[in-house]
Amino acid sequence: MADPMKIRAQMKGDTAEVRVLMSHAMETGQRKDNAGATVPAHFIQSITVDVGGKRVIQGQTGTAVSRNPVFGFKVKGAKAGDKVVINWVDNKGDKRTDETTIAA
């Protein structure tokens, strides 16, 4: 199973700043291993972010995203204590959901 994400969420004025670090190989499908065999593509394909029960991001990602990627975004109108739920699904169907609450 995939390793947990690291999520940080904090209010700055009326805006929540959310940052998430995901543990993923993000193989492009272009790399060859030591034996010369192509390492199959393996990457996060979709990401969703819910804040306070409301979907704020639904995104698609591809092989241009780095290994162990970091995403950061700002959510207006969120408040301290709101739950942030982040989910990703990769091209092999592996997935992971983690959550945190927004700090004041």
Partner: peptide
Amino acid sequence: VLEEDNPAELFEAR
């Protein structure tokens, strides 16, 4: 900039 969200944390957690 990168150090603020250093993926090293993922290895710390592991």
